[in-house]
């Protein structure tokens, strides 16, 4: 089983992940329409690029925008969760050991204690976000089962990973489950609304170009996000 999930299934999930992301990018850009979107993407490109970069940059940092600052706790946990989601799997010692075994290459790795804390914080953040969804009427109304499923898919690899790390009874069960959960996560990124992994950048760039080219970017200093 271990061989299967770290072999063919891993190849399958990484293929879906990478190709899916490329397809997302291509489809997004091909679907842009200067006339319908009312943004001259190909004219005044310098203003467009500037607008796009500003639009991404300010939002990429916690408290970089009015919206992040207005919601300090939400921002804190959302950023913490995303840092954990992105850093832990890439720089985890265990993953890199596996990588070296298979391909003879590996990346710099996080100290195990840090990876452990990050994983726990991802779970804590997800729990808090779920509680927020339930507690705030304006969020509760718009929340769907799909939103909870997304959180579950994102958190499952961390929960199962920690179980394996702590050598819970049935270690190999947790390990295989962890790998499967990670693979589900990978596949889900291009196929579900977790596609914001890449669409965040594209959508932000688009609105940034709109502001940079048409909505005042050529007249003022650019929108104070």
């Amino acid at each position: 089983m271990y061989e299967f999930v770290t072999g063919p299934l891993a190849w399958f999930s990484f293929t879906v992940f990478f190709i899916g992301i490329i397809v997302r990018i291509v489809l997004y850009i091909r679907g842009l329409d200067w006339k319908a979107d009312r943004v001259t993407y190909r004219v005044n490109v310098a203003y467009g690029v500037k607008g796009a970069l500003r639009s991404i940059f300010f939002w990429l940092f916690p408290y970089g925008t009015h919206s992040w600052r207005n919601n300090p706790w939400f921002t804190f946990w959302v950023f913490l969760m995303h840092v954990g989601l992105l850093l832990t799997p890439v720089f985890l010692l265990g993953h890199n050991v596996l990588l070296r075994e298979r391909w003879g290459v590996s990346l710099w790795t996080l100290p195990e204690g840090v990876a452990e804390v990050l994983s726990i914080l991802v779970i804590v953040a997800a729990v808090l976000l779920v509680l927020r969804r339930i507690a705030l009427p304006e969020v509760r109304l718009i929340t769907t089962a799909y939103d909870y499923l997304m959180l579950a898919i994102a958190v499952a690899p961390f929960f199962t990973g920690l179980m394996a790390f702590y050598r819970a009874p049935d270690y190999s069960f947790w390990l295989v489950l962890h790998i499967i959960c990670g693979e589900i996560f990978l596949v889900a990124i291009p196929l579900t609304k977790l596609s914001h992994f890449i669409l965040f950048f594209l959508s932000r760039a688009q609105l940034g170009m709109d502001y940079g080219i048409k909505r005042g970017g050529m007249k003022g200093k650019g929108l104070a996000w």
Binding site: L136, E138, I142, D147, M150, K193, S195, L199
Partner: peptide
Amino acid sequence: EVCSHCGL
């Protein structure tokens, strides 16, 4: 599609 229903 991507709206996370975060309510911001």
